[in-house]
């Protein structure tokens, strides 16, 4: 049921320089499309927040969303696991496909969907429970009760999130007592414990100090060999450092999407260029 979980942490191949070259080599491989949106419009009441977004997200890669504040990055991210369903008065047109299945199909169980498409929020959201219970939360609500299984999952998730060594001796302590950076990695570990294929991250490092940010970025880099990762960020260096592909949003429109290196060095659109060079009003 959790085959990848017991695997050792993959050896990281990343160079140790902070601003690393985007891994262009891996991008040459043609990857299957994990997530796809077709002509997606999204409305908050009468307010249209997304206009005709068509985007493909390849599997086992990192896709970064950038764009000015309020351009709809979070909104778009939240449609990908239907978190927007919670907000009253929202609606959409167009399709969102996960491996070719329309996630808005009435037969789709939204709970099952969210297990496969995990999410990490900007502000870390530890539950007021022990570290162990935090990580075990997802499997438990899915009905897993076996304690040894849970222990295994907790350990492997924490290892994947590079938090194990720091917390292994205090699994019963409250998660609220962890530092901000640790809390954020805890949330990532918690998302990993439900065995998702896709991990959505909304500005996961924006509330962290530089050292914690580096750890989270390293983590993202490590995770992409097993997961499809979508990350919203305001930090363009960060997008350049961690992502394989980058999408630029502006006022609810998807302006441009492409391999990260290309988008940052040879943007096709004027708006993109203005934004990444900081010449933006």
């Amino acid at each position: 049921m959790f085959p990848t979980m017991t695997a050792e942490k993959p050896i990281s191949l990343k160079p140790q320089v902070p601003l690393r070259e985007p891994s262009a080599a891996t991008d040459d491989v043609q990857r299957a499309i994990k997530l796809e949106t077709r002509h997606l419009d999204f409305y908050y009441g009468n307010n249209q927040a997304l206009h005709d977004i068509s985007l493909q997200i390849p599997e086992r890669s990192v896709t970064a969303f950038i764009g000015p504040s309020g351009c709809g990055k979070s909104t778009f991210l939240r449609t990908l696991n239907r978190m927007n369903d919670i907000i009253e008065g929202t609606r959409h047109t167009g399709d969102v496909l996960l491996e070719g299945t329309d996630i808005f199909d009435p037969r789709v169980d939204v709970v099952a969907l969210r297990k496969r498409v995990g999410m990490v929020f900007q502000k870390s959201t530890p539950f007021p429970k022990s570290i162990f219970d935090n990580i075990a939360y997802g499997p438990r609500v899915a009905g897993l009760k076996d304690l040894s299984r849970l222990t295994e999952i907790v350990e492997s998730s924490l290892k994947r999130a590079a938090l194990w060594d720091e917390v292994k001796d205090r699994m019963r302590d409250s998660a609220m007592a962890l530092s901000g950076g640790q809390q954020q990695r805890l949330c990532i570990a918690r998302a990993l414990a439900t065995e998702p294929d896709v991990l959505l991250m909304d500005e996961p490092a924006s509330a962290l100090d530089p050292a914690s940010t580096t750890r989270v970025e390293d983590l993202i880099f490590d995770l992409k060999s097993n997961y499809t990762i979508v990350i919203v960020t305001h930090n363009m260096q960060q997008a350049a450092r961690v992502s394989d592909r980058t999408a630029f949003f502006y006022q609810g429109h998807l302006v441009e999407v492409g391999p990260t290196q290309e988008l940052f060095t040879r943007p096709k659109e004027k708006q993109t260029e203005d934004y990444i060079t900081g010449r933006f009003g």
């Binding site: 696991n81 978190m83 919670i86 709970v111 099952a112 969210r114 297990k115 995990g118 999410m119 929020f121 502000k123 959201t125 539950f127 007021p128 939360y137 997802g138 609500v141 899915a142 949330c187 918690r190 998302a191 439900t194």
Partner: peptide, 14 residues
């Protein structure tokens, strides 16, 4: 806080 609820829903809790 609402963020806690959203986090739980995102983990597949009903």
């Amino acid at each position: 806080p609402g963020s806690i609820r959203h986090a739980a829903l995102a983990l597949g809790a009903t």
